[in-house]
């Protein structure tokens, strides 16, 4: 009996003598955080970083309840959440970890290589139905989108379509991979995906924010984001009182090495 007791005590204390840093939230940010955690723990063996997903809302709720040190989010704090944090007297600090840049893609055989933001809105809201109207071939336009459950969908509707609704003929596919597949096999297709998912079977379009503005390919650095704003920031949120606890990890994220990891994962550091 005593032997077992000491074994459990050993397990208990064996674990707690390592500092634990909990990171929880968005599934979009999850793979990035896992890479950070892996490399961070290789250097700082005494810190245990645990990363779990669940969605942006889940992570922020955990932060509110003190169940995590860092909440990952693929969207900014909602007003309702801000007010809830304020009500508990918690000051949350927002840290932009990376940018998830969206690429607008078509089939390589489509002669169109650039569009204005307006064109994009007209395509997805159904005001333009044929590539001819945009100076392309006489083919119907088949817009593809992620399902409504995806954060990318919400971002695209709110920011690119400026809150307007998708046209009824837009095809909704369940995952980014299926959209890549659909565009690669159809000359009339157009779709939006994270730049991490682009491949040579797709043609990435240059986008102009307004008529007369220069056409730009998806941004590869923060400076370029000003001219290519179809990108959403990925955030870490933490309680100001935990600043010391998370400082070292965040410093690693923003270090040369961390930024290289971010770029390698297909995001803009």
């Amino acid at each position: 009996m005593g032997k077992w007791m000491s074994f459990f005590l050993f397990l208990l204390f064996g674990c707690t003598d390592r500092a634990v840093l909990r990171i929880k939230g968005s599934d979009t940010v999850l793979p990035l955080s896992q890479i950070f955690a892996e490399h961070f723990m290789q250097r700082r063996g005494e810190v245990l970083v645990s990363v779990t997903g669940g969605g942006s809302g889940v992570g922020l709720a955990a932060l509110l309840n003190g169940d995590t040190e860092i909440a990952m989010a693929s969207r900014p704090l909602k007003v309702s959440e801000r007010l809830r944090f304020a009500a508990r007297g918690i000051t949350v600090i927002e840290d932009t970890v990376a940018w998830d840049v969206l690429a607008i893609c078509v089939h390589p055989a489509n002669p169109i290589s650039r569009l204005t933001w307006e064109d994009l809105e007209r395509i997805y809201t159904g005001q333009v139905r044929n590539w001819r109207e945009l100076g392309g071939p006489d083919l119907p336009i088949h817009p593809y989108s992620r399902e409504s459950s995806s954060g990318t969908f919400e971002f695209f509707r709110e920011r690119v379509l400026r809150g307007k609704d998708f046209a009824a003929h837009v095809r909704f596919l369940p995952a980014t991979g299926t959209i890549v597949q659909a565009i690669a096999q159809n000359v009339s297709a157009i779709g939006y995906i994270g730049i991490a998912y682009t491949n040579p079977n797709l043609k990435v379009l240059a986008i102009a924010t307004a008529p007369g503005k220069p056409y730009r390919l998806p941004a590869r650095s923060r400076q370029e984001l000003a001219d290519y704003p179809i990108a959403r920031p990925l955030y870490y949120y933490y309680d100001q009182r935990n600043r010391e606890k998370v400082k070292e990890f965040l410093a690693f994220v923003h270090s040369e090495e961390g930024r290289a990891l971010t770029a390698k994962m297909g995001y803009v550091p």
């Binding site: 009824a168 003929h169 095809r171 909704f172 596919l173 299926t178």
Partner: peptide, 19 residues
């Protein structure tokens, strides 16, 4: 979910996407 296109369109022919 994978092959029908999932567009909530009131399809008049079977050669349109449906949800």
């Amino acid at each position: 979910l994978m092959v029908s296109g999932n567009a909530p369109l009131l399809a008049t022919t079977p050669f349109q996407p449906v949800r």
